[in-house]
Computed example of a mutant assay.
Amino acid sequence: MKPVLTILSIPFILVTLGLFLIVLNALLLRFTAWIADGVDLGFHVNGFWPAFWGSIIISVTTWILDAIVGVDD
């Protein structure tokens, strides 16, 4: 779902110099929490701002782990 949304939001990503990707990640994190709540998995995100900060933490962690592990696609 993320690749499709990323392609559809390319104009917003270009205008905001990539910062819209953080908003997109926050919305997807919120959507994941909504699905997890529906199947009772115990994963909760209480609003947009916690999802926003969570997406920043996930992005930075992914960036650091990718730099350490260095897996080529």
Score class of each variant (00 low, 15 high):
residue 40 D to W: 14
residue 7 I to E: 10
residue 41 L to R: 10
residue 68 I to Q: 03
residue 16 T to I: 06
residue 36 A to I: 02
residue 71 V to I: 12
residue 29 L to M: 08
residue 57 I to C: 13
residue 53 W to D: 05
residue 46 N to K: 12
residue 31 F to T: 15
residue 62 T to N: 15
residue 27 L to W: 11
residue 61 T to L: 14
residue 27 L to C: 12
residue 25 N to F: 10
residue 42 G to R: 00
residue 39 V to T: 09
residue 57 I to P: 11
residue 50 P to E: 00
residue 31 F to V: 15
residue 38 G to C: 05
residue 53 W to T: 02
residue 59 S to G: 11
residue 26 A to Y: 02
residue 55 S to D: 04
residue 28 L to P: 11
residue 10 I to W: 05
residue 37 D to V: 11
residue 21 L to N: 04
residue 13 I to V: 08
residue 27 L to G: 11
residue 7 I to T: 09
residue 10 I to F: 05
residue 18 G to T: 02
residue 18 G to A: 01
residue 6 T to Y: 13
residue 50 P to A: 02
residue 61 T to K: 11
residue 64 I to P: 02
residue 63 W to V: 07
residue 45 V to D: 00
residue 15 V to E: 03
residue 32 T to W: 15
residue 50 P to H: 00
residue 52 F to V: 02
residue 40 D to S: 14
residue 52 F to E: 01
residue 22 I to Y: 09
residue 43 F to Q: 07
residue 61 T to C: 12
residue 10 I to N: 06
residue 48 F to K: 01
residue 7 I to W: 07
residue 9 S to A: 09
residue 4 V to S: 12
residue 41 L to K: 10
residue 71 V to M: 14
residue 53 W to H: 09
residue 67 A to L: 14
residue 49 W to M: 05
residue 29 L to E: 02
residue 56 I to T: 03
residue 46 N to I: 12
residue 35 I to R: 06
residue 10 I to M: 06
residue 1 M to W: 12
residue 49 W to E: 06
residue 49 W to T: 03
residue 67 A to V: 12
residue 36 A to M: 06
